[in-house]
């Protein structure tokens, strides 16, 4: 999409609220996407590399939740 066609909220309140909502959506999307990848047999290092974070960070953030959800996790390399 050309830059001039990108939607830009005219009101700063709308733009700031969009930032808040996008952060929330990104968090939800990360939880869902990491879970989907791990259920599909991805490894922690591969998920970390795809997200551009360290494997320690992704493991710390998601491992407990996925274990509690009964997801079979591949061992860390």
């Amino acid at each position: 999409m050309p830059a001039e066609e990108l939607p830009v909220p005219p009101d700063p309140a709308d733009a700031l609220a969009a930032v808040v909502a996008l952060r929330r959506l990104a968090e939800r999307l990360e939880d869902a996407a990491v879970e989907q990848a791990m259920r599909a047999g991805w490894s922690w290092p591969d998920v970390a590399e795809a997200l551009g974070v360290t494997r320690q960070a992704v493991h710390k953030k998601h491992a407990k939740r996925l274990i509690a959800a009964g997801v079979t996790l591949r061992r860390r390399r």
């Binding site: 909502a21 996008l22 869902a32 939740r65 996925l66 997801v71």
Partner: peptide
């Protein structure tokens, strides 16, 4: 708020993530 920047939550049809009981 998402629509203001052209985003729809339904654009991402991933299943809802499992809740984190430890959070």
């Amino acid at each position: 708020s998402l629509a203001a920047v052209g985003v729809s939550p339904s654009s991402f049809p991933l299943p809802a993530p499992a809740p984190d009981p430890g959070r």
